[in-house]
């Protein structure tokens, strides 16, 4: 564990990238929900207070209204071996190395599952500053991922996502302009293949926020519109999403205690007549975090993160699809935070 010791020596910069491995023991689902009011007096006081509809809080971003449900229902499952090493060079700059060895599922016409053994090494560089975040990832198979987040003003943020490959016409890029108002958020997106999107979300009451989005695919000459609403209190979060593409999505998350949260969601696609219900849990223990789910397609999954030492975490991942007879088991380790 010399590398672990050396990794622990410099102060690691805070990693806030969803693209990277989930930060171990960051605020769990129970911690993300708004704090519980203290005692009954606080509750009574809260009841007596009148709602000031002209001074509402700022809602969560439109693309994140389901984030609590996704934490339980879509953990980062993997199959095979995974090893991530992150080393901070100074307060703002860090490097990361990732090794993956396992099988990748190839889409096939038949009901049989076809897997191809594969392995790759990924090198990453991160620059994190309060106003500027740069993240780069390059893989041995020739793919490159780049992310930029830049605060242009106090309220306007620019985000850039790019995925470049050596195969012609397969590279992608996306620009996001996020504007944050006092009680609303607006976002405008520009992507390749003449993609344009926009969304808007606003608080209507202190607990309820509603939003809408639109997108245009220029090459396919197709446009769509969607609506979303979210209701959250200190103990629960409920969301509803409807889109003209025929998708209806509901989710509900309940905080059972300081350490346990339960989540459920319902997804219906009118075009493909596909419907799925899922139920998940998020359990925070002293040294580990356990997340899992069951869904109506016969899939059972679990994901365990255990802290072995400061900056060293052990990962176990399992996903069993009974209907397709597709079984995936993975183990891994992350070093450095």
């Amino acid at each position: 564990m010399g590398s672990a010791a050396s990794a622990a020596a410099p102060p690691p910069p805070p990693t806030a990238q969803p693209h990277m491995a989930a930060p171990p023991y960051g605020a769990g689902l129970a911690g993300i929900l708004p704090p519980k009011p203290d005692g009954e007096e606080e509750g009574k006081k809260k009841e007596v207070e009148k709602v000031d509809y002209l001074n509402l809080p700022c809602p969560v971003p439109f693309e994140e209204i389901q984030r609590e449900a996704l934490m339980s229902l879509k953990p980062e499952l993997f199959e095979g071996l995974r090893f991530d090493f992150t080393k901070g060079l100074n307060q703002k700059f860090s490097l990361s190395h990732s090794v993956f060895m396992g099988s990748l599922e190839v889409p096939s016409q038949s009901t049989e599952t076809i897997k191809v053994p594969t392995s790759h090494y990924e090198f990453g560089a991160n620059f994190i500053d309060p106003k500027l975040i740069l993240v780069g990832r390059v893989m041995t198979d020739g793919r490159l991922n780049a992310r930029v987040k830049c605060d242009l003003t106090d309220d306007l943020t620019l985000k850039i996502n790019a995925q470049l490959t050596h195969e012609p016409h397969y590279s992608q890029g996306m620009f996001n302009f996020d504007y944050k108002g006092t009680d609303y958020r607006a976002q405008f997106q520009i992507g390749n293949n003449a993609f344009y999107g926009a969304n808007y979300i606003q608080s209507v009451t202190p607990n309820l926020s509603m939003g809408t989005e639109i997108f245009w695919l220029g090459h396919q000459r197709k446009s769509g519109i969607g609506f979303a609403s979210r209701y959250n209190s200190d103990k629960m979060v409920g969301t509803l999403q409807v889109a003209s593409t025929g998708i209806v999505a509901l989710s509900y998350v309940q905080k059972v205690s300081e350490k346990v949260s339960l989540a459920s969601d319902f997804m219906y696609n009118h075009m493909s007549r596909d419907v799925t219900s899922s139920f998940g849990y998020d359990y925070m223990l002293r040294q580990c975090r356990l997340r899992g789910k069951f869904d109506s397609n016969g899939v059972v999954a679990a994901y365990l993160e255990e802290r072995l030492n400061m900056g060293v975490n052990f990962l176990l991942s399992a996903e069993i699809d009974h209907s397709k007879k597709n079984y995936k088991f993975g183990f891994g380790m992350t070093v450095g935070e």
């Binding site: 709602v51 609303y184 809408t212």
Partner: peptide, 20 residues
């Protein structure tokens, strides 16, 4: 779609004032 979205934004924008 743009007209519908603009209408929804206007309605959502007006809701807090009506409640107030």
């Amino acid at each position: 779609h743009l007209i519908v979205m603009a209408s929804c934004v206007a309605a959502i924008r007006a809701a807090p004032y009506i409640l107030h």
